[in-house]
Design a binder for these strands. Structure first.
Length: 871
RNA sequence: GGGAGCAUAGCUCAGCUGGUUUAGAGCAUCUGCCUUACAAGCAGAGGGUCACAGGUUCGACUCCUGUUGCUCCCACCA
């Protein structure tokens, strides 16, 4: 074996081996299932740190489930991501000099599919580098033929049930992508804007004005009223009056409504029903006309009368100048306010009135809310239940149509008069049309729009098993409900909530038992990783540099449950070092020469046997609670500290001496068990080392399909002895360090407890003791340093002048500490109410603590006096 | 504006339903070691008024209230 572990080559070798031997494939059988559906990454995506965290966690859950005897199935796939992909394709076409507007729908879709075939699989390939144990035969895409039909069928079904309708409402418009967005796709950001104070001339004989304040002066051209608060005395005299919109002189009424905030600006609001949701509502209430001054691309429309065809932001500046020139602009103030941006294109959102398709939510939300509140579906961390409840209780109708081509085309058919039917095919539509509108003409045209991406992804846990296409098939029966969904909290509404709704609506059952929400990956300064900051490392480069195991380790070890994690390359260093530690531990073991009568350490093997079981139970508990980074820490310590630092040092024979075959076999076996325990976290190196010590080379064995033992009983007593041994060893090393002794300097230990069998296990290697003597009570050795552990005293002989003053001080400090401790314990015990009220076990423990402390104090006193006498 | 969460060592965090010591870990720091698996290593050390102020209790890092500071989600302000 090389001196250092080198992951390159090893990782791809084992991934191929796993695939060739179909270890990740799953078919229904008599084992219980453990299923995860991957949150399908966008076809446009490349792997980033968020994916790394997310998929590593899923991989751990899947691999562990398989080790625990479940039939584990992890389903991969991608999401067509309508708006994001369409934007990419449009961009690609532009680079090639093709304008989307010159293409037919079919031509555009041909390009889009080409693009998807070329780039759509990249992200899945990258997951293989991470080691993900996905069942590739089950790969799904949200626009696969069956999946597409399932989405359309669900639309039709909900329409028939009366949950889907068409209507004109104020929606969020993305002028860049030129499509409607759902509420969830709008991100509000604080921006610095100007607040323009503009005066409107009143329709009187005198030179009278009313001044309003607005951040969007370009919409002045769409004003149809000015609104003030009914109890605002400043404006009482204007009742029933009119004003003129500056520049275009439209005569508009002054209206009164309690919606107005009198303290903002001048207390007078310009009302533009076409371009603001609140203004729209005011308009409805006061029956105001609507003047839509913007085109769909964000330029001024004909209705604006001025600046026609110019961009809204250009016009904002121009109109301010013109207002100023004509004496309408009173002043400009700076203001922080929040603007909506498109999640996908980052364009500033326009509230816009338009005809869209909607899905009513209340009846879908009800069972989905109950399931989470009653913990039928468990959220980890549970705090997200609150967020979820709040949204579900205030849920609004879902805008599901998008003015795009890439996606599931809405199955609605219209005649020339805008009358429509919903049907899967044109044929069906014609039939329906005849029935519905017997005397109308019908040259039918299908709706040009597609459905929101999430209207397909909410069916993911069902349709990846063909739960719509073939509802009674064996796979859906066996795998659904899935076990755990691992996802980011950002998409709790977009996706998680809606999958739960779809699950109850169409399967009458939850889609998953639990949802684990990961944190956000941030850089070490706590900033969110983003392209624009350039603080996101290239994952593939990281894997090349450190190996996937080390990267997995790095991202997990910093990842507390439910909190954001601060990633730093240093953590991958730690992971790489851990790899190397494992590698070298095996190098040591394999380097032993083994004979029947070589060195045996029966205590050490007993101790580690117990330790292994104890820690595995601990890891089980942590994993049950999804405390994944804590579980990894526990494995890490078990291997590094318990196995390498203590166990291996205990069983290491003297230089060039052989090890006994019993101890050797036990050690190999421990190592194998440790690899299995670690495997879900670091799959590649554990497979490599597992194969390295494998005995039967003939069968297609892998650590992937090796079961974890489920022992639950272990020897508590030997663990206590081990702790004592560790304490003693540490104390001896401390003496060495304090006395600045070289490794070669002679040192000896006297002990006096006959009942202590573990003492024999203090091998010279642990502390480099030159001799170990049991002594009889009466003859305490001279010139030694006393160590008091749990009331027993040990003596260390260092063969050099002892600094008695320093030793006295050390004993004194320890004595003081122990006395303080005893006092606090005694305070409790002398309190009658404590003894009366506290749990009897607690009282018993406190009594034990007191007597231990007393014993220790006595021993310390004795040694202190002896030292003082010598002085 | 509504809601949720966090505050423990220089940094990142454990410490679950009050009593395992007078609070732990990893990283970082310092000291000593090229000791025959690993310097990507070994051994040892230092470092905390558990944000602040009250309260409940025999007993509070842990429960309650308030204050301060930070984070997130939702609603959305012309």
């Amino acid at each position: 074996m090389e001196k250092n572990y080198n992951p390159s080559g090893v990782e791809s070798k084992w991934y191929s081996y796993w695939i060739e031997n179909r270890f990740f494939e799953s078919q229904p059988d008599d084992r219980p299932s453990y299923t995860i559906v991957i949150p399908p990454p966008n076809v446009t995506g490349v792997l980033h740190m968020g994916h790394c965290l997310n998929n590593t966690i899923q991989d751990i859950l899947i691999r562990r489930a398989r080790q625990k005897g479940y039939n584990a199935c992890w389903v991969p796939g991608t999401d067509h991501a309508s708006i994001a992909t369409e934007a990419k394709v449009v961009g690609m076409l532009r680079e090639r000099g093709i304008d989307k507007n010159t293409l037919s729908r079919e031509e555009f879709l041909t390009y889009a599919w080409e693009w998807k075939e070329k780039y759509g699989g990249i992200i899945l390939q990258q997951l293989k580098k991470l080691g993900c144990a996905l069942d590739w035969d089950r790969t799904n895409f949200t626009m696969d033929n069956d999946y597409y039909n399932a989405v359309i069928d669900v639309f039709i079904d909900l329409y028939k049930k009366g949950h889907i309708y068409r209507g004109v409402k104020m929606i969020h418009w993305d002028p860049k992508a030129q499509t409607a967005l759902s509420d969830e796709e709008v991100i509000y950001k604080e921006v610095k804007s100007n607040l323009y104070y503009v005066r409107y001339k009143l329709d009187t004989d005198k030179e009278e004005y009313i001044t309003i304040a607005t951040t969007r002066p370009e919409t002045i051209l769409g004003d149809t009223a000015i609104c003030v608060h009914p109890s605002d005395e400043r404006y009482h005299h204007l009742k029933g009056m009119y004003a003129f919109v500056p520049l275009i002189n439209r005569r508009i009424p002054i209206i009164y409504d309690e919606y107005i905030d009198m303290t903002f600006g001048t207390g007078a609001l310009k009302v533009t029903p076409a371009h603001d949701i609140n203004d729209y509502n005011l308009g409805l209430k006061h029956r105001l006309p609507i003047v839509d001054v913007l085109n769909s691309d964000g330029t001024m429309s004909k209705a604006a009368e001025l600046f026609i065809g110019e961009d809204r932001f250009v016009v904002r500046k121009k109109i301010a100048k013109q207002l100023e020139a004509e004496g309408f602009l009173v002043k400009i103030e700076e203001l922080m306010n929040s603007n909506g941006f498109s999640e996908r294109t980052d364009a500033v959102i326009e509230p816009r009135l338009s005809m869209q398709w909607w899905c009513k939510m209340p009846h879908l939300a009800k069972p989905a809310l109950d399931a989470v509140m009653k913990d039928d579906i468990q959220f980890y961390p549970a705090k997200f239940k609150n967020t979820y409840r709040h949204w579900m209780e205030n849920i609004k109708d879902w805008c599901i149509s998008r003015q795009l081509w890439w996606g599931h085309r809405i199955p609605a058919w219209y005649n020339e008069h805008g009358e429509f039917v919903v049907a899967k095919t044109e044929q069906e539509a014609q039939q329906l049309f005849t029935e519905k509108y017997p005397n109308h003409s019908f040259t039918l045209k299908q709706d040009e729009d597609v459905l929101d991406t999430w209207f397909s992804s909410w069916l993911w846990p069902i349709e990846v098993f063909k739960g719509f296409t073939n509802p009674d098939n064996a796979a859906i029966q066996y795998y659904y409900p899935t076990a755990t969904l691992v996802t980011a909290p950002e998409i709790i509404f977009f996706w998680v909530a809606r999958m739960i709704m779809a699950g109850y609506e169409y399967k009458k059952a939850k889609p998953f038992d639990a949802v684990y929400f990961t944190g956000i990956v941030r850089d070490k300064q706590g900033r969110k990783m983003s392209k624009s900051l350039g603080n996101s490392p290239d994952l593939l480069e990281l894997i090349d540099k450190y190996g996937a195991d080390a990267v997995r380790f790095g991202i997990l070890i910093s990842s507390p449950a439910g909190n954001d994690l601060l990633y730093d390359d240093k953590l991958c260093d730690q992971g790489r070092n851990f790899n190397n530690k494992l590698w070298n531990a095996l190098r040591l073991i394999k380097g032993f020469s083994v004979t029947k009568d070589g060195y045996e350490n029966e205590f050490a093997t007993r101790w580690f046997t117990a330790r292994l079981i104890e820690q595995r139970l601990q890891i089980d508990e942590l994993m049950k609670q999804y405390q994944i980074s804590e579980a990894l820490k526990a494995v890490y310590k078990l291997i590094w500290d318990d196995f390498c630092s203590w166990y291996l040092e205990m069983i290491k024979p003297d230089f060039e001496n052989p090890i006994g075959s019993a101890t050797y076999q036990a050690t190999l076996n421990f190592f194998r068990e440790l690899m299995i325990t670690l495997h879900p976290f670091m799959p590649f190196i554990t497979e490599e080392l597992f194969q390295e010590i494998r005995e039967e080379k003939s069968t297609f064995t892998s650590i992937c399909n090796t079961l974890l033992k489920d022992e639950i009983h272990f020897d508590q007593e030997v663990l206590i002895q081990g702790d004592l041994l560790i304490k003693l060893t540490t104390s001896i090393r401390e003496v060495r360090a304090k006395n600045q002794m070289k490794p070669k300097d002679e040192i000896g230990l006297y002990y006096n407890t006959a009942n202590d069998t573990s003492i024999e296990a203090i091998k010279k290697t642990l502390t480099r003791l030159n001799y170990l003597n049991c002594l009889i009570h009466s003859e305490k050795p001279e010139g030694t340093i006393p160590l008091t552990i749990k009331g027993d005293t040990y003596y260390i002989q260092v063969h050099r002048e002892i600094d008695i003053e320093a030793e006295i001080k050390r004993l004194h400090d320890e004595l003081n500490y122990t006395r303080g401790f005893l006092t606090s314990v005694n305070n409790k015990l002398s309190n009658e109410r404590f003894v009366a009220n506290a749990n009897p076990d607690v009282v018993k423990k406190e009594r034990q603590k007191a007597s231990d402390a007393e014993k220790k104090i006595a021993a310390l006193m004795e040694e202190l006096n002896r030292l003082k006498a010598k002085k």
